[in-house]
Design a protein around this nucleic acid. Sequence first.
DNA 1: TTGCAATTCAAACACTTGTATGAAACTATC
DNA 2: GATAGTTTCATACAAGTGTTTGAATTGCAA
Lengths: 220, 220
Amino acid sequence: MASDHTRSAILAAAERLYADRGFGDVTLRDIVAEANVNLAAVNYHFGSKDELIAELFVTRSIATNRERLRELKAAEEAGGGRAPIEVILRALVGPTLRGCLGPENQRSTSARFMIRASIESVPPIRRIKNREIDHLRKFAGAMRRSLPDRSDVDIYWGLNFALAMAHHTIRESERLTKLSEGKCDLDDVEDVVQRVVSVATMALTAGKAEAKGLSKVAAR
Amino acid sequence: MASDHTRSAILAAAERLYADRGFGDVTLRDIVAEANVNLAAVNYHFGSKDELIAELFVTRSIATNRERLRELKAAEEAGGGRAPIEVILRALVGPTLRGCLGPENQRSTSARFMIRASIESVPPIRRIKNREIDHLRKFAGAMRRSLPDRSDVDIYWGLNFALAMAHHTIRESERLTKLSEGKCDLDDVEDVVQRVVSVATMALTAGKAEAKGLSKVAAR
DNA sequence: TTGCAATTCAAACACTTGTATGAAACTATC
DNA sequence: GATAGTTTCATACAAGTGTTTGAATTGCAA
């Protein structure tokens, strides 16, 4: 037990280094040097390098998922088991975006770490992400209840696109800033959330007939 | 010069192995074994492992970009310098989606390679992607001409979301299939293209006032 | 055929990596 | 204050990495 000082020093150092330099070129030796602990301490406390990475990611990702579900549950309860689609989508993408975007200078280490995790996607992290499906299913369920007329397929596509916009914006935030020459303000997180939610809502509520007709005309 | 047999054998073997097993655990020794050539041949013909990867990615990515620009140019010429936004968006995401999705059994090696490149994103590939901004700017320009009333910011967000949906769908195609229990048919590429284009079009053409109003109401 | 450059080859190099070991230091309990 | 359990430490290990070397081979031109 002791003070767990070593353990948390490793976690903090690893998170900081991964956030700054990516998973590719940070070795255990870099981490223990940054944490001022012995090389063997990592294997003693975590078992392996992968388990250390996994713990970092899992901790943060559990927090996000909990916040997501909290918002979703609150919304459904307030609506008597049925929440407006905008609110569901906001519960889905809001926590992630708020956790990763925001003014760069005050962006936390864990935020930067999560951005890295989103960009690089090493095996231990991929393994965890693959277990996220059950979590997403809860949102699919809520969306179905919110839009009972919509087909399952449309629901899944809407969910997919909402996540797509949120994650891609996080992952490519630097490129978007460069492309738009700074015109797209990624520091205004709530504006980003609103944009994603509003497009995803349109995707899910646009008239089917209209879309079908459009497809007939525009298809090559 | 000779027959370049060794060179192309290496390229083919590398592409196949990377496509199958990812960049993480394919070594030069794996590649030369698969290609039946000597270990030193890689460095002789390509200079380094990274340059080999870069050449693989660049070749394929140039082809996609050329097809994109071809479609864009054709559309703008047909419309006298101004193309419908749907067609521009289709030129943007169509080639990429067609190059990566489609029936799994007949998915080409290079298609699978590009999916890997999209998922794992190793340094040499990231470096190339970063040079893609000029290419995207051409699409931003066409979109501005197509929608002169739209603000630059809205254009960039629309572009960002279109790419988001296309790339995320490629990258997470397996998860979407699993999540939807096979209900989302990713083999019907033209349907996917249509969905992406249609949502992106909505994002770009939806009334501003409406969106603003919505944001006031729905913002937490 | 001779000569010369391009190519192939086996071998080794120089490092880095994560992990394991076993002794030393520490901590808390009796 | 001895003891048992935990934690730290220096060090070694074993394996794998991309890359380099210099000699052998090949293919083509003179």
